[in-house]
Amino acid sequence: MDKKHLIITSITLGVIAASSALLIGVTNLITKDKISQNEKEKIVSGIKAIFGNESKIKEESPINESIFAGEYKYINYVYTISDNSDVLIGYAFKTSGSNNFGKITMLVGYTSTKIYKSVYMISDEQTFASTLEDEYVTKITDNPDYQDVDVHCGATYGATLVKEMIDEVKGAVNK
């Protein structure tokens, strides 16, 4: 391959790569804050699903800066929830964990009187996500005695992971 031809090819490919990088960068600038805003909205709608429509986030902090600080495997964020007249009604813990079928991120809601309120699934990319959703998660939402819901439900590994997360949150709340 003669020299000149090689240079032309590498220049054109370089221009294509640079222009595509530029295009991606520009779209990223446009969509970056919108995506994080979407995530925020998802959490707010989750909290509304757990604590009712008039609940709102009073303050939020990573777990280790909040009053529940400690050594946790799943919990990474905690939200204190209050209703419209700023009365504390409970806490929502954002937990995320994964097993060999995928990652689960969810919100676990506890009332201020340390009773398990409900669970909201933010993102469930497990392979058997739909079976987990129908067979287990719907059974433990708004069901105080989630302990005796059977874990063998066609998505056993996913269900045990969800249960471990709730138990860890229970430990944190009762601290």
Binding site: T12, I16, S20, I24, I30, T31, K34, N38, K42
Partner: peptide
């Protein structure tokens, strides 16, 4: 290779746009 790069760029752009506007 040039076509694959071009198509991959547009797919990434579309992925970001849908993640933002049609979650």
């Amino acid at each position: 290779p040039a076509y694959i790069v071009i198509i991959a760029t547009f797919v990434t752009i579309v992925k970001m746009l849908t993640q933002a506007f049609l979650p």
